[in-house]
Every structure is written in C-alpha cells, then in structure tokens.
Simulated scan of single mutants.
Amino acid sequence: MSISVKHISKSYKSVNALQDISFEVKEGELFGLIGPDGAGKTTLFRILTTLLFADEGTATVAGFDVVADYKSIRNSVGYMPGKFSLYQDLTVEENLDFFATIFGTTIEENYDLIKDIYVQIEPFKNRRAGKLSGGMKQKLALSCALIHKPKVLFLDEPTTGVDPVSRKEFWDMLKRLQQKGITILVSTPYMDEAALCDRIALIQDGKILEIDTPEAIVKYYPKPIYNVRANNMYQLINSLNAYEHNHSVYPFGEFVHYTDNRTDFNPDHLKAYLESRNLSNIHIEKTIATIEDTFMELAK
C-alpha cells in the first residue's frame, strides 16, 4: 500500500479533530477525502506529511513510518497545502528553482513531469507569484510540489476558490499525473469532484462515514429520492420540513431533494399537501441519488 492509516486520533484541547481513522490507499490510486470545513482533512494531511504528531495510531507513507522515517517521507512526497504558501515576492521561475534546489534536482531534470502544467504558466515565468491569478497560483504550487518527482502527492483542497474552468483543467492534470504512476491523495469539500476519484472516504467531525468507489457510495442511499420544485423555493422548503412524513429535505440547485419515511409513498399525496399550503407550479419527479445525498444521509 502507498498509504496506510491505522487508528489515528488527534485532539486539540476539547476538540476531537480525528477519531480512530483507518484506511489504505493503493499505489497509483487517486483517492479522495471528502468532507466540509472542520471535518479533519487538513489535520490528517499534516500528520501524513510529518508536520504534526498524532495522539494515537500509526501511519505509513510510501513504506515509511510518519514518525520514525519522517526525513524519508519528506523526500518522497509532494504537498500542496490549502493556503497558497509559495514565496509571493519571488517570480514563477525563482520559486520553481528554489524548490528544485532544496530537493537536489533541477527544473530540466524533471521537466517531463511538470511540462503539461508548466507550459500554461511559462509565459508568466518572470511575474511574481503574488501577482498571479488563483488558477495560475494553483498550477505553480502543483509544479513546485512535483519538481522532485514524488511517489505520493498530497493536495489539500487544491481547487477551493478557483473558477470552474481552472477546476476542470486541474483535475485533468491530476488524471495525467496518475497515469505516470504517482499516488494522489486529495481532499475537497466539492461533492462533484468526488466522482472523479477512484475511491473516496467521506469524513465528518473527525470520523470516517464510508469508504468505497463513488459509484458504490451512491448505491448506499437507502430510499427513493425525488426532485421537487414549486413557485416559491423558501415556502417549499418550509412546507416540506413541516410535512409529517418527510425523511429528508435538502435544497439541490433549482430543486429540493425529498425522501419520504413511508414505504408506499405516492407523489400525488405530496402534491395535494403542497397545494394546500398555497404553493403552485408544483413539479415532482423521481431522481438518482448523488454522493452529496449519500453524505447528508450518513452524516445524520
């Protein structure tokens, strides 16, 4: 296994950031850690990249123990933290040269690994990093994390605050890096990005809720789910929450995702109830559960 985590726990005073976390990531796998802010993703990344000690449990990365072999791990992994942490007063090229020198290599030596990414920022190689756009900062940070050809790549919420086009480009780059044999552990709060991973772990309040492929995670959803729409979204949500038979009610784009606690649910009965609450233009249709639906169900 490229990453092995066994019974890791970590607390900050009265806050249990991680509670008995265990999972494994195979070599060459693109593994996603999916959860909201405060779920424990960054704490786990810091433990696995030897920046933080766990209170309990053990972990290995690329075959090295995170405590005993921390120097070997630091030479074997690339880490892109959630906050842009490169030197903002240095240019793009100076940042890359600096990180290459730290690891005893050069841009030229591993250029093939970063080529697809670097060609997009090369026209700005003389611009200071602090003056780059969000998407360009992201690509520079990824290039710096890859410059020493790591075995494992850790990416902590790499697309947060980045525009949709740059997000798609970034995930396309990750797929190409995976084809080069690099193991990737990425965390994200975006449920749509979870579907792009080989396997995912859903995490909430420091606990793993479920681990499986995105396709299998969706199949865990226990009930039929319906898209519901009406003329007044705010009133619709309040009415569905007040409905005695509701199991779950969540806004989902232009619809509300609704599940019922009865086994013999009839959409016509729900429509009649909503009409009695003075709602109109009511539309109810069965839909397919998403990873977000499954996450919300497990988090309950």
Rank of each mutant, 00 (worst) to 15 (best):
Q138C: 10
Y234A: 15
E275N: 12
P150F: 14
K131H: 08
I117V: 15
S11P: 06
I211G: 04
T60G: 00
L274S: 06
S239M: 12
V186F: 05
D172N: 14
E215D: 12
K207N: 12
A201K: 02
G28K: 04
D192S: 09
M233D: 12
Q120C: 09
V92I: 13
D198N: 15
E108M: 10
A289M: 02
S9Y: 00
A242R: 10
L298K: 12
G135K: 06
V61N: 00
R74A: 05
N16E: 13
E94Y: 15
N110P: 13
K149I: 13
L155K: 10
K83Q: 11
Y70C: 04
G130D: 03
L140K: 00
S9G: 06
S22C: 09
L274A: 09
F31R: 05
V119F: 10
T43M: 00
I107L: 15
I291C: 07
Y243F: 15
S85R: 05
N238H: 09
Y87G: 01
N227H: 13
H283P: 01
P158H: 14
R262E: 13
Q19T: 14
K41D: 04
H247Y: 11
Q179L: 07
K175D: 11
I107R: 14
H283G: 05
F154E: 09
F124R: 02
C197M: 08
L96R: 01
L196T: 05
E122D: 14
H269M: 05
R74P: 15
L90K: 06
A39H: 01
L30S: 02
P123K: 10
S22N: 08
A39F: 00
F255R: 00
E109N: 15
F103H: 15
F154I: 11
A216P: 01
D172K: 13
A145F: 08
V228P: 00
Y226Q: 05
D293Y: 00
V92D: 05
E244K: 11
D163F: 12
T60A: 00
D65P: 07
V66L: 02
G78H: 06
